[in-house]
Amino acid sequence: MAILEVEDLKIYFPIKAGIFNRTVDHIKAVDGVSFAIEEGKTYGLVGESGSGKTTTGRGIIGLEHITAGSVKFNGKDITNKKKKTKAISRDIQMIFQDPYSSLNPRKRVRDIIAEPLRNYENLTKQEEKKRVQELLELVGLSPESILKYPHEFSGGQRQRIGIARAIALKPKLIIADEPVSALDVSVQAQVLNFMQDIQKELGLTYLFISHDLGIVKHMCDDIAIMYKGRYVEQGTKEEIFNHPQHIYTKRLVSAIPDIDPSNREKLFQFRQEVQEEYDESYNEYFDSEGLAYSLKPISETHLVALPEKG
């Protein structure tokens, strides 16, 4: 059974104008997104800036108001914040994009990591300290650093503190909102591999939000491509990378860099072809407003936003 089911999720932000501040229109940040994540898998959500992938993640965890649709965790409806029990909010945690602003600069590492423990578990000071030290060790930081402040750490180390905080309660689902995009490449690999390790160790499920296709290829089992709040294509990793059907996906996949210089010419030509195809068939794949059509299944797992034929 799927651990997380999202059905026709819509998150609209009102545009207010006029003297009475009436709502004149909506920005459709997320417009009818549906997916399901199996336990223990990593589901990748890819898209350009402003495509609504982060909003989707924040909507699921309850940081944004959901306009319509439903979110189910382990079969229980958690769309409404009030229906969410303590046990469920404990099982869903989030890793934030920016390791610099996601840690309170006025708190010591010990207090940062112990925050979720203090909210959900009754531990004595000693037990709590031990748990924090264990968690720090787990994320590869020295247990002695519990008395330091966030500004004494590098970006990568801070992100690990953020991860330690997210896994402190042994959640079932972690929403990772571009967890490595603020880090440099060498640290990215470290953090990603570490995330995979703890996934195996703790049996975590990830909703992995990213704009970096290389990372998604490395991390995810299933992938969805988002564009302007809608899904463009959804499928397994192989389907998306080897048989992209939508022109937008093709263009994205062709843009993945290759480090082999002998392929340079070939790749350049390939990209040009894809670009030409994109320019030619843009009107076929997107409707009059430039939005993607609704998804059509082309195999059991592969869904593509194709226009109605005929």
Partner: peptide, 9 residues
């Protein structure tokens, strides 16, 4: 960090 505190309950 405020948003994070919210998600941490």
């Amino acid at each position: 960090y405020v948003q994070a505190s919210r998600t941490l309950g």
